[in-house]
Design a protein around this nucleic acid. Structure first.
Length: 189
DNA sequence: TATGAGATCAACT
DNA sequence: GTTGATCTCATAC
């Protein structure tokens, strides 16, 4: 699959497709096991109020990385999606550590594998992502995006940590993965 | 195990 | 002046 194909379609096509892809920065990273979709006209999305200086990358070509500071402390990583220019994006929430584990342990200050990449702020810290990476493309160095060829079974659950449209089940989690964040691992009844 | 507070800042109103 | 697409640690059960 070409990178154009990977990021084609709506966020609800792209989000589950990304599960199983391996995201690396400087050869360090892992397999994506948890994402969240942020649709156009989504009140929970940073792009809801239109394009601003901060969220400009969300409106760029599909695949563009949108990196922002959260709660003054953490960085969070998104990829822009089609339709281009609408601010649609997918938030990378968790990775299964596979590449450069030692480097991630050093950056995260822990050797607990389960705590390396199990949350959006942790993923950014483990890969060393910062504002410098805003607007870059995940298949261009220092990043790399690898297709595992697998289509992993997944569940959808409500998104985590938002206050608007919190009931929409737009969080995509690899079924049975132990590498996801602390949110629900199965859809609520 | 569960819950709550503090950290810390850029963008937005 | 307010607000987070969060994480960690401390304290309580």
């Amino acid at each position: 699959m070409t990178v154009e194909e990977v990021f084609s379609g709506s966020v609800h096509d792209v989000a589950p497709r990304l599960l199983g892809y391996t995201l690396l920065r400087d050869g360090v990273g892992g397999r994506i096991v948890e994402v969240e979709a942020y649709a156009p006209d989504d009140p929970a999305s940073h792009s809801f109020r239109g394009r601003t200086n901060r969220n400009g990358a969300m409106f760029a070509q599909p695949g563009t990385l949108y990196v922002y500071r959260s709660y003054g402390i953490h960085w969070c990583v998104n990829v822009a999606c089609e339709p281009e220019g609408t601010g649609a994006a997918v938030l990378i929430r968790a990775l299964e550590p596979t590449h450069g584990v030692a480097a991630m342990e050093a950056r995260r200050g822990t050797s607990n594998l389960r705590a390396l990449c199990s949350g959006p702020g942790k993923v950014a810290q483990a890969l060393g992502v910062s504002a410098d990476d805003d607007g870059r493309l995940p298949w261009v160095k220092p990043f790399a995006l690898l297709d595992s060829g697998e289509r992993l079974p997944y569940l959808t659950t409500p998104r985590v940590g938002i206050t608007k449209a919190a009931d929409l089940p737009w969080r995509y989690v690899v079924r049975g993965s132990v590498w996801t964040s602390a949110g629900p691992r199965r859809a609520s009844p």
